[in-house]
Design a protein around this nucleic acid. Structure first.
Ligand SMILES: NC(=O)c1ccc[n+]([C@@H]2O[C@H](COP(=O)([O-])OP(=O)(O)OC[C@H]3O[C@@H](n4cnc5c(N)ncnc54)[C@H](O)[C@@H]3O)[C@@H](O)[C@H]2O)c1
Ligand SMILES: NC(=O)c1ccc[n+]([C@@H]2O[C@H](COP(=O)([O-])OP(=O)(O)OC[C@H]3O[C@@H](n4cnc5c(N)ncnc54)[C@H](O)[C@@H]3O)[C@@H](O)[C@H]2O)c1
Lengths: 219, 219
DNA sequence: CTCCATTTGTTCCTGTTTTCACAAATATAT
DNA sequence: ATATATTTGTGAAAACAGGAACAAATGGAG
């Protein structure tokens, strides 16, 4: 495919490594809340569906964070991972398409745990423009470029219907957006400097169905 | 990891192949709507971010659907893929946790294109129980087992907060659910006969941030 | 201080997935 | 009928990712 591999001076690793680091970070935070201060790779993996070797290897791409014979100091590892992933400082993001899904995302508290904040929202629907939803004012699409540039937002959530997704993505890129989390079921064509992640629930569900059908036949 | 590989008498292929088939199917349907009747692997891939060799190989695991020198007949390929994926007949699914995200999913028209229908919804909140949202009545968690068994539902969308997700998943499994699309940021522990797919938006976003941070440094 | 139990970091290996590349098949033009 | 242009299906090769396994490091018990 493309944009699936990351290379440093040290070595190369896959993009999946980064997703797993994010998973590790979230679980480490839970452990910290429970008061656990040190954990070994063997004892954290039951929470994660990942092998302990993989856990250690993923970390090893970025440095040595554990202590042999002991394990990992939870607080330290959280800090290191936040540093690696970039969530040690706040990230401002934009949202386009304040429909059902867009509104759910606006109200999602989960993002704040990652230091992520939706600072502006846009919609083409005149009835929605001007309303304040979950503390964010919905702006007209015409103001998209100005506001995104002014607020120096680099990431956007794209929640419009698929037929307008390509057009919207082009406006976002023109406004300086460098990363798009795309919820619409359409593969976007963007310059290679822009990073797109797709969240495709219908595909997920369809592959789930394939499995079920298969297992039923077996049983 | 686990549950990542599918083997038939013919050969073995990865779970990613299935997700791609789902992607192909959706795009083929769009082509059909546009009136395109025949397409070659070289001309469909610009829509997909997949190589043409991959496209052909993914299909080859299931049979020979193309005609050399010509390409694929769109209508036929759609039928074949629907057959393979199992979406040629209607699938009934359940939803648990009628919060912001749950309500967005209840109103999502996209599922119907895949012959997927949410036939029941459950919540623990007494204020929500009894309401009808997007044509689906919200039921009490106590009735979960009875209703799911009676309607013979095998797939569920899990949209409760993470702290109750494990508990809810156990109730679902006890009610006969065999596939769970999990939106809560928690790795579920379920019997190996149950298939879980995770949709983890916060992880996606966090890995996006990693990339941006990286590119900025480069620039 | 020595031995033993742990646990990390990393090398090496193995099986998987993707891509390459081409024979076989088809259509069209002459 | 033959040549030419396409395009599939697929073996073989290359690229990758994941896991086993172990030396090196650490801490604690005796
Ligand atoms: N609802 C869900 O649960 C769900 C699930 C999976 C995927 N999706 C996808 O997410 C997207 C949004 O789904 P939804 O259910 O929220 O739809 P929706 O119709 O409720 O909302 C879409 C919003 O986008 C706005 N919009 C349309 N064209 C626009 C444009 N050119 N510029 C700016 N805004 C525009 C509309 O005014 C509307 O507010 C769709 O692509 C859908 O396929 C939704
Ligand atoms: N809102 C989003 O856009 C979003 C995005 C990504 C992930 N998620 C995840 O999806 C889940 C739901 O998010 P939300 O924003 O809709 O939350 P929400 O608080 O709006 O809704 C949660 C719903 O679950 C119900 N619930 C709680 N405990 C329950 C139980 N034991 N049994 C049945 N129902 C129960 C609540 O009554 C409520 O209706 C969370 O795990 C969240 O992390 C949400």
């Amino acid at each position: 495919m493309e944009r699936e591999r990351i290379c440093t001076k040290k070595s190369c690793f896959s993009f999946d490594t980064i997703k797993r680091l994010s998973l590790y970070l979230r679980n480490l935070k839970r452990l910290k809340e429970k008061g656990i201060e040190v954990i070994s790779s063997d004892r954290i993996i039951p929470l994660l569906n990942v092998s302990s070797a993989q856990f250690r290897k993923d970390l090893s791409y970025f440095g040595e964070f554990g202590k042999r014979g002991v394990g990992y100091e939870v607080g330290r590892l959280i800090k290191e991972l936040e540093e690696i992933l970039g969530t040690n400082k706040e990230w401002k993001i934009a949202l386009v398409g304040v429909g059902r899904l867009g509104q759910a995302l606006l109200g999602f508290e989960g993002f704040s745990k990652f230091n992520i904040k939706i600072v502006c929202a846009f919609d083409i629907d005149k009835k929605k423009v001007g309303k304040v939803i979950e503390g964010v004012k919905v702006e007209d699409m015409k103001k998209l470029k100005t506001i995104i540039k002014r607020k120096r937002v680099k990431i956007a959530l794209l929640c419009t219907p698929p037929h307008s997704a390509q057009e919207v993505s082009e406006k976002l890129v023109a406004a300086g957006i460098r990363g798009i989390l795309n919820f619409s079921p359409l593969i976007l064509k963007v310059p290679s400097s822009v990073f797109v992640s797709n969240v495709d629930m219908a595909c997920e569900l369809e592959s789930l169905i394939f499995f079920l059908k298969r297992n039923e036949r077996k049983v």
